[in-house]
Simulated assay, not measured.
Amino acid sequence: MANLHQQQSFAVLGLGKFGMALTMALLQANQDVLVVDSNEEVINDVAHLVTHAVIADATDEDELRDLDIGSFDHVFVTLGENVEGSIITTMLAKKIGAPDVTTRANNHNHRLVLEKIGADHVVEPEQDMARQLIFRKLHPNIVNYFKLSKHVSLVEVSVKNPHFFNKSLGELDFRKNYDVNIIGIIHNGKLNQVPLAADVINPHDQITLIGSNEAVQKINEILQEEK
């Protein structure tokens, strides 16, 4: 199969409830996404939204190799309650050479097994939701927070620093100056999903940004400075 990926490419293996939510978050972040599921109906439902949608068995090594899974930057294994399948798929993805594999665990013991076989990052949705709730309580300026991978986060944050007010995205150049990308602006409750360089940040606006964990944390601290 032809190489499907580009720089910062994402593959989601399994389109259960969590896998679908993850896919939607990646699409909102304007990322290229390959989704894989053995259910034809599920694939047909999402095919028009994603970069590539493939009907395949994620526990089959030959099929994963055909998809060139090893060359994707980030692979998410989200096979729902299929514990055995998630373990097999994680092992195969690492064997094939995927550099960053994130797998959903159903419980603590499942997590331990996944970590032992080489998963780069393991998520337990209920536990992670609890941690995110505490995170938001400790950082009330952050409206939404989502960890896309071990190294990349997406956050929706309120802007309090007057330095950013009444300036365009082109002037502020977040990518050059802060190493993050702005993918949305919420002004007066209305979301601008495709902000342009000429769009201006106003007082009380919220912005959605994506970048490395370190870059996101740094710009968040700057945005909160009420000088």
Rank of each mutant, 00 (worst) to 15 (best):
Q7I: 15
N188K: 15
V35Q: 07
K147N: 07
T59A: 10
N220Q: 12
H151T: 15
N213A: 01
V123L: 10
G97P: 03
I117T: 07
A11L: 00
N109Q: 13
R136Y: 02
A21M: 13
D173P: 03
G189C: 11
G70K: 05
T103E: 03
F10H: 10
V143C: 04
Q224L: 12
L148T: 02
V113S: 08
T90V: 06
L15D: 06
G70Y: 09
F135R: 14
S149T: 03
I182G: 09
N30A: 11
N82R: 13
V180T: 08
P99V: 03
A197G: 06
F165K: 09
A58R: 06
T90L: 05
G14Q: 04
Q31P: 01
R111H: 14
A215D: 14
A198V: 13
G19T: 02
L133N: 06
K137Q: 12
D205K: 05
S149K: 02
A29W: 01
I201L: 14
T103H: 06
Q8A: 13
R175I: 03
G70E: 08
V155F: 00
V77P: 09
T59I: 08
S71I: 00
L22Q: 11
E63W: 00
I222A: 11
K150Q: 13
T51P: 07
L4G: 12
K94N: 04
D45Y: 08
F10V: 05
E115S: 05
E221H: 12
R136V: 00
A119R: 07
D60M: 08
S158W: 03
D60F: 09
A93M: 05
I55Q: 13
L13K: 04
V152K: 00
D32H: 13
V216I: 15
N161V: 05
F72D: 05
Q132R: 14
Q28A: 12
R104K: 15
I117R: 02
S38L: 10
K190N: 11
S212L: 09
V35P: 08
E124W: 00
H74A: 02
H163G: 06
L133D: 00
G85W: 12
V200C: 09
D73Y: 01
L22K: 12
M20N: 09
H5C: 11
E63S: 15
E40T: 14
Q6W: 11
D68K: 15
V152F: 02
R104Y: 08
P203S: 12
D199A: 10
I43S: 10
L67G: 11
E214W: 02
K147I: 01
V194C: 07
I186Y: 03
K167L: 13
A130C: 11
H52Q: 12
G97V: 01
E63A: 14
I88G: 08
H121F: 12
T90K: 00
N107A: 07
L148C: 06
S149R: 00
V50M: 09
S158P: 04
Q217H: 07
S149L: 03
H5F: 14
V123A: 01
